[in-house]
């Protein structure tokens, strides 16, 4: 699914989190929103996911206006920075949550749900942890469960907020490859937010550098490296 962001702006009270920004994301791309904290990248991601409503502008999914869609209607697989796993539910129940939440007419039967959850646990390479609770998992495992939970609803796109933020360097590298693999197998348009330029450059097809609520530059990693457009981009990617 391709995503079109048209002149989106967002104000929180008197402060502008996003000045009008426009961005076009081709179907199936893995996009990094890169920038320091306060650059508006998370706000943009949350607007895509339907968690914030823009002050002005439109969002188009496959050419049709999605701005007014509720969170539930967007079917965006969202992975939160804190993972936001439901700690009173097992890993299995966490992953099955979205399917069970569907209205009766479209809800798959229990056996089908179980089959899909098992498949997702295989996909994230943690086949045996279905019966555990989130508190019994390592940070990296939690992140992968959050990813599986987001994928379970057969999302139209995948949105990840600092997906590797809370992990140590070694796990981070492993999981980067994991995300890349999952992106390549599912073919989902994927947008992730990061403040780590190395991570963005290594993982993404398309990097969007943001600063103070504006998009500074959009391009392939190698282009941005070779031809930084502004002083900010040059400084940020070399730091």
């Amino acid at each position: 699914m391709n995503i079109e962001i048209e002149e989106i702006s967002k104000e929180f009270g008197a402060t502008a989190a996003l000045h009008p920004v426009s961005l076009s994301i081709p179907s199936g791309t893995l996009v990094a929103l890169l920038g320091p904290s306060g650059s508006g990248k998370t706000t943009l991601l949350r607007i895509l996911g339907g968690l914030e409503f823009p002050t002005a502008g439109r969002v188009l999914f496959d050419g049709s206006d999605a701005t007014g869609l509720t969170v539930q209607e967007r079917r965006a697989g969202f992975v939160f920075q804190s993972y936001a796993l439901f700690r009173h539910m097992t890993v299995f129940d966490n992953i099955a949550y979205g399917l069970r939440a569907r209205p009766r007419k479209t809800r798959p039967p229990a056996a089908e749900i179980a089959r899909r959850v098992t498949r997702l646990l295989d996909l994230i390479k943690l086949p045996d942890i279905g019966a555990r609770y989130p508190s019994q998992l390592s940070g990296g495992q939690r992140q992968r469960v959050a990813l599986a939970r987001a994928l379970a609803i057969e999302p139209r796109m995948l949105l990840l907020d600092e997906p590797f933020g809370a992990l140590d360097a070694k796990v981070r590298r492993e999981l980067r490859q994991g995300l890349r693999d999952i992106h390549d197998t599912t073919g989902l348009t994927t947008v992730f937010v990061t403040h780590d330029q190395e991570e963005a450059m290594e993982l993404a097809d398309l990097v969007v550098v943001m600063s103070m609520g504006r998009i500074e530059q959009v391009g392939k990693p190698e282009d941005i490296r070779a031809r930084p457009k502004t002083a900010f981009v040059r400084e940020f990617i070399t730091s």
């Binding site: 002149e7 702006s9 009008p20 339907g50 968690l51 914030e52 409503f53 823009p54 002050t55 002005a56 502008g57 439109r58 701005t67 007014g68 509720t70 969170v71």
Partner: peptide, 14 residues
């Protein structure tokens, strides 16, 4: 800049 009017049925998820 065109103000996008908040649809009635849209509200924060929390």
């Amino acid at each position: 800049m065109t103000e996008t009017t908040l649809p009635l049925r849209w509200r924060p998820a929390t």
